[in-house]
Design a protein around this nucleic acid. Structure first.
Lengths: 237, 237
DNA sequence: GTGGTGGAGGTTGTATGATAAGTTGAGCCC
DNA sequence: GGGCTCAACTTATCATACAACCTCCACCAC
């Protein structure tokens, strides 16, 4: 009698362990959508547990919408549910999708820069300059520049003293960063590109530091519109 | 032997019916967080099903994170999981929370108005005017004005021809409309208030119609800033 | 050969009984 | 009163049995 063919059985009760094991096999592609899971009888012998345990595990997966048992036929794996994250990029291939996101970001970040200019505390001002300095440093060290770029924008969002701005960037970040690497490149970005980016950041930081709301708005707008242009350029290869 | 004490038992299998029944009782407050569910034995007799069914139902609820069985002790109802909707209003009581949201909206809608002014199609232009006309009409008919207000902003968002703007308003709408009724009042809003709102809408619509990007931006900003002011005013009672 | 039909075997759904293991609270002992 | 024991209850797991259902193959009629 084979015991726990699957390597992992950590949960304190058998059902939990089996759920984890099956969930993992579904996740890693052992079973794909539409496939039929092994029958309860086979699972009982394969995992060395009773049918009760197997059935409760399947009931759990069913509740999670991962599988759908059909009496007499078997237990079938369902399609992973449509990810319904608010600002989900449906298809990264569509250039327009990325442009659309950037446009929304322009809207928010222009205002963020403007508000930051009149509201930033000395600490926040400092944080912005530090974040701005991060980008060239990381580039010089050959580290990925993506996070440094994001860090600057987050620092600016924080300086509005309205947490919703950071929230917005974080929600968006999840859905645009993955392929954002594409636009800047996971390969070390060309130095002149980093210089450009860095200069634009500095201009924003200076305006915020000076408390010049309109200049900050303009600098942020210029920065993101340039990013958009660079993205279009990149797409055109 | 009592059969299905709960009125609803629609699902094609017993487990599904029991899950629905228990979920409903948890939702409607019959069982609150921390409460102990009836024992398996009691549930079997109360619903007239076997212990197998009861256990699988509980396994389902467990997978959904609604309950947590503890061997020897019982099955306990868990706290409803922290709602993690991106722009969730943590506490409607906090005025600042609403103000924060409005501020984010100002940012997005200013740009939306600006973009709409240069991008709107004739149909979209028409839709905006229609939506603007909806507000005074609904007010005159004593119907709720909330939806008419939202409709105008959505029409404007649509006119950007960037679907992300509508998406943004819809995501935000879910978390700010509930209590937005509070600011304008579910009771018929005072006529002069409606007139004010309507005039501001018209100004935006005119600017968009004229293709004057800057005027549209300014009108949108004025409108939302006024809304913010009115909200503060209302809070102050 | 082709098409329909039946049934056998496999599969999930449900019921029942039994045992193990953990929790809890009442009552006893000191 | 404080600590201990234990009985009763509860969930966890196993085993067995039968009902309902689905699939597919073999057989049969044409």
């Amino acid at each position: 009698m084979a015991k726990t063919a699957s390597p992992r059985a950590r949960s304190r009760n058998l059902v939990g362990g089996l759920v984890d094991a099956l969930r993992a096999e579904i996740a890693d592609g052992t079973f794909e959508a539409g496939d039929k899971l092994p029958s309860e009888a086979r699972l009982t012998e394969r995992f060395g547990v009773s049918r009760t345990v197997v059935r409760e595990a399947i009931a759990g997966l069913r509740a999670d919408g991962l599988v759908a048992p059909r009496q007499g036929a078997g237990v079938f794996v369902l399609e992973p549910p449509e990810v319904t994250t608010p600002f989900h990029l449906a298809d990264y291939e569509r250039i327009s999708s990325v442009i659309e996101m950037l446009e929304l970001r322009v809207a928010v970040e222009m205002e963020a820069a403007s508000l930051a200019a009149v509201r930033r505390s000395p600490q926040q001002e400092e944080a912005i300059f530090e974040a701005a300095a991060l980008l060239p440093r990381h580039a010089a060290e050959g580290r990925p520049t993506k996070e440094a770029d994001l860090a600057f924008h987050l620092a600016m969002a924080d300086a509005t003293n309205n947490p919703r701005f950071r929230e917005f960037l974080e929600v968006l970040g999840l859905s645009m960063i993955p392929r954002a690497a594409l636009t800047i490149g996971d390969a070390p970005s060309p130095p002149d590109y980093i210089d450009l980016l860095s200069a634009e950041h500095s201009r924003i930081a200076e305006a915020i530091s000076a408390g010049d709301s309109e200049a900050a708005r303009g600098a942020a707008q210029a920065h993101l519109r340039n990013s958009m242009a660079r993205y279009r350029e990149y797409i055109r290869r």
